[in-house]
Simulated scan of single mutants.
Amino acid sequence: MAASYPTKIILAFRSGGVCAMPKCARHLTYNSPTGDDTYVGEAAHIKGEKPKAARYEADMTDVERDHIDNLLYLCTDDNTIIDKVPADWTTVKLLEIKTKHEMQVRQAMELAFADVAFPELQNAVAWVSNQPPATNGSFDLTAPEEKIKKNALSNGARNIIAAGMMSRDTVAAYVEAEAQLDSDFPERLKAGFLEEYFGQRKEGYKGDELFELMCAFAQRGLRKQADRTAGIAVLVYLFEICDVFEK
C-alpha cells in the first residue's frame, strides 16, 4: 500500500507546500504553465512502510502506516537521508519535526489573516477569470457554526474558520469591487469552489478531510504566505455566505 493522493494533498497543505525538514524549506509544488499544479514532495513514512524499511513496526496496520499522522512531507533528498541513516533520524525525532513544522505553518497562516488585502486576494483568485459562472446555488447566509456541526468539523478546522473570519469584510469588499467591473465575478468564484467541493464529495470525502482538501484547492499555485492565506480567507468567506459545505 501507499498513501493516497488526497492524503498527500492534505499533508502538503499542512506542511505549507514546503519540505518539513529544518533548514530545508524547499518549495515542493510544480507550477505548470497550463495551470495544473503538481505536488512533487514525498509522503515519507516515519515508521517504515515495509518490513525492511527504517523504523518499521510490525504491530502497525497498513492503514496506520499510510495515515497522515505517520507521514512527513519531505523533498527527495531528505526522504533518502532519513531512511539511509535511521540512527540519526529516530521515530521520536521525526514526530517532533512533523509536529513543530505543521504547527509553525498553521500559526503563520493564522497570523497572516490580519494582513490580507486586495493585492493578495487578487493573486489568490486569479484563476477565476477562466471559470464559467455558477448556474445554480445561492448566496443565502448560513451561520458558520451550523455548517461546522453539519460537516462534523474538528477544533482544528474551527480554528482556521475563526481566524479566517478576521478577513471576512476585506474579502466581501474585494468581491463587491470586482463585481462592479464584472457582474459575473461572484458566480464564477463560487462555481470554481463548488465544482471542487462536489467533486470531492462524490469521491467520498467529508468532514476534516474534505475541509483540508478544499483548503489545499484554495491555495493551489500559490507560494507566498500572504497569498496562500488569502486563498483560505476566500474559502472561509464562501463557507459563510454560500452553499460551499452546505449540501
Rank of each mutant, 00 (worst) to 15 (best):
T7S: 11
T7G: 03
T7F: 07
K8G: 10
I9M: 14
L11I: 01
L11T: 03
F13R: 04
S15K: 03
A20W: 08
M21V: 08
K23M: 10
R26F: 04
H27G: 04
N31W: 11
V40G: 10
G41H: 03
G41K: 05
G48E: 00
K50E: 15
M60H: 00
D62G: 03
D62P: 01
E64W: 00
E64H: 02
D66H: 01
N70F: 03
N70L: 04
L74N: 00
T76H: 13
T76Y: 07
N79T: 00
D83I: 03
K84E: 04
K84F: 00
P86T: 07
P86S: 03
W89G: 05
W89I: 02
V92H: 02
L95C: 06
K98T: 02
E102F: 08
E102T: 06
Q104K: 15
V105L: 10
V105R: 10
Q107R: 14
E110G: 07
A114I: 13
Q122F: 11
Q122T: 15
A124M: 09
V128T: 07
F139D: 08
F139R: 02
D140W: 09
A152E: 09
S154K: 04
I160V: 15
I160C: 10
I161F: 05
M165G: 13
M166R: 15
S167H: 02
D169H: 04
D169S: 05
V171L: 03
A172Q: 00
A172S: 00
Y174L: 10
E176Y: 13
D182S: 14
P186E: 06
E187I: 04
K190H: 09
K190W: 06
A191M: 05
E196G: 00
A216F: 14
A218E: 09
R220D: 06
R223E: 12
Q225I: 15
D227I: 10
T229N: 03
I232T: 06
V234N: 03
L235H: 00
Y237N: 14
L238T: 07
E240H: 15
C242Y: 12
C242K: 14
V244E: 08
E246I: 12
K247Y: 14
